[in-house]
Structure formats: structure tokens, C-alpha cells
Nucleic acid binder design. Structure first.
Lengths: 158, 158
DNA sequence: TATTGTTATACTCTATAACTATA
DNA sequence: TATAGTTATAGAGTATAACAATA
């Protein structure tokens, strides 16, 4: 067997494993939350509003790393269902502060709970000690790579 | 602070970290190989052909988990550049066996080398012993979750 | 009649840039 | 004139299903 073919048959690197497993985890999560009739992007926005309510759409767009125009559609889709509110700032009427409604907060908690089930399903083959070791390794990489905690980088041009 | 808000401020689970880091790694890899004028999907196909040459497009589509119609465009894009060859089977002229050309094999090796640089960049914050521990944890999850080794699950409806 | 590969069509997602309303 | 948000438009990527060639 020629050297080139041998090399291509080699197992791919850890970064590839990470990408493959990440895509798998994301797809499985999307399936779970589809039962709640929300998309991953909507979920991330709900999470972000819950974590820091009252921000303007511009500020939120910057936090998530998305063009403001994309945020409009996401906010619309949640506002139409009464999950999110735009509150106009009386001082500067250009600003729309984002808040969860009571239903939005309730849904966010349901999603959080689905997330825990999802976590267990993905990590079921690891012991508890291994899970925390994995978690700390991943957290270190995420910090080193400059990822914003709790924000999926998929909002940035993918 | 109410309980609901506290919970939503909690760090997300490991599966979320995995998804976020995987998307990040995939995006950085896409940037690197853009210099070679190939996309991640093309890269995966080149890899698959290199690993198991001579397969029909149907067989390849099944291996990658993609509709055969999607494979046509990918193969076209590589064949137009002289990287991949369709060889018609004289016995059954419906079948097109996929092979790399010499240039295709050379490009596949360049990509492999870019992949190693990419790996180092993503994992630079970990010691060597930590990298192998991470690798073995990820490999176990991948196997438990039924991922085909060396194949990115993104070929399946995303 | 069944199968391989291809093409045609339509749909989803997204970014860019023009536009409005407020300041 | 500058900024927040919105709308319009166009492009990329993909799946579904119809189709042609071959068996």
C-alpha cells in the first residue's frame, strides 16, 4: 500500500472528532427541541434574553455576533408567539429593549430541562468522573479559543 | 434574583460546549482550506474516495449519508478541476466508479497536512497527555453515538 | 420493471444594502 | 448627520421528485 493511501486512511485529528461530534450533538438537540416548536437559533436567543434582559437589539446582535437584520426575524418569530416582548424606550424611541414574557420564561425552563436530558444522552457512555474531566478540557479549549460563554458561534456567518 | 433567571444564567451542559466548540473548529478549518479553494464537503468526499477508491456514487452516497443527487454536484466540482475521475464500469455501464487523479491525491495530502496544523491550533492550550485523554473520551462518545469513523455527520440533512 | 446517475424545482437560511423613524 | 431597527433582494446550499440511460 503506498504511503499516501496509508496516511489518508489514518484516523482524523481530534479537531475533526470535535467538529463531527459537535454537529451530531447539535442535530440531536435540534430534534429534541423541535417538539417544543423552536429552532436552535431561537433557543439561543431566548437564553441570551433570559441571561441579560432589557438589552437593545443592536447590543444583542453584537453579543451573539449576528447582523442586526437577522435578529429582527428571530425576535419577530418569538414575539408573534408571545414569548418575547419589545419594550420601547420612552427616552430614546429608537431603542427596543428585549424581555421574556412569563410564557417565554416558562418555555426557556422547559428547554433547559430538555438540554439536561440531551446532555445525559450524549454523555451516557462516560462515568461521572470522566464527564467532569471532559467538561473541564472542553471549557479550557473554549476559553483559549475566545468563545463567548453560553453563546453558540453559529450566529457568526455559517 | 428569581430562581428561573438564576438557572438560565447557569453554564450550559457539556453537549452544548461540544456543539459550540465543534462549530468553531469547523469554521476555522473551513477558513484554512479555503486557501486551497475547497469546501469542507469537498474535503470529506476527497478523503472518502482516497480511503475507499472505486466505489459507485450510490455506495458513496450511502457511506456519507447524503442523497445521491447531492453527490453529483460535489463530484462534478472536483472532476471539473481534474481532481476526481468517474470511471465507467464496462460490465454495468450504469455504474461510475470514483477515483482520485494524481492531482487529487496530492491535494488530499495537502489537506491532511492543513488538518494537522488546524489540530495543533485548536488544542494548543492542552498538554500532550491531556490531548490524548480528550481524544479517547471523544472517540468513545463517537462510537457510542454510532458515528461512522472519518465521516462528518453534516452530510445528513443539516 | 428496477437501478444508476442526473436534472429541475422549490425551499430554507443568510448577508448586504437600501430604507424609515427617531435623535 | 448619525443611529436603531426594518424590509427587500439576492445568493448559497440542500432535499425532493421527475427523468434518461442502462440493465
Amino acid at each position: 500500500m503506498p504511503a499516501s493511501a496509508r496516511r489518508l486512511d489514518d484516523p482524523p485529528g481530534s479537531a475533526f472528532l470535535l467538529a463531527a461530534l459537535g454537529a451530531h450533538a447539535a442535530a440531536r438537540f435540534a430534534e429534541r427541541i423541535a417538539a417544543l416548536d423552536v429552532t436552535p437559533a431561537q433557543t439561543g436567543l431566548l437564553r441570551a434574553i433570559a441571561a441579560t434582559p432589557g438589552q437593545s437589539q443592536q447590543a444583542m446582535a453584537q453579543l451573539l455576533g449576528t447582523p442586526p437584520s437577522r435578529l429582527v426575524g428571530l425576535v419577530d418569530s418569538l414575539a408573534d408567539r408571545g414569548l418575547v416582548e419589545r419594550r420601547r424606550n420612552p427616552t430614546d424611541r429608537r431603542l427596543h429593549a428585549l424581555h421574556l414574557t412569563a410564557e417565554g420564561a416558562a418555555l426557556a425552563e422547559r428547554i433547559e430541562s430538555v438540554g439536561r436530558e440531551h446532555d445525559d444522552a450524549i454523555l451516557r457512555s462516560l462515568e461521572h468522573s470522566e464527564r467532569s474531566r471532559l467538561r473541564s478540557l472542553l471549557a479550557r479549549i473554549a476559553e483559549d479559543q475566545g468563545l463567548t460563554p453560553g453563546v453558540h458561534p453559529g450566529y457568526r456567518r455559517m
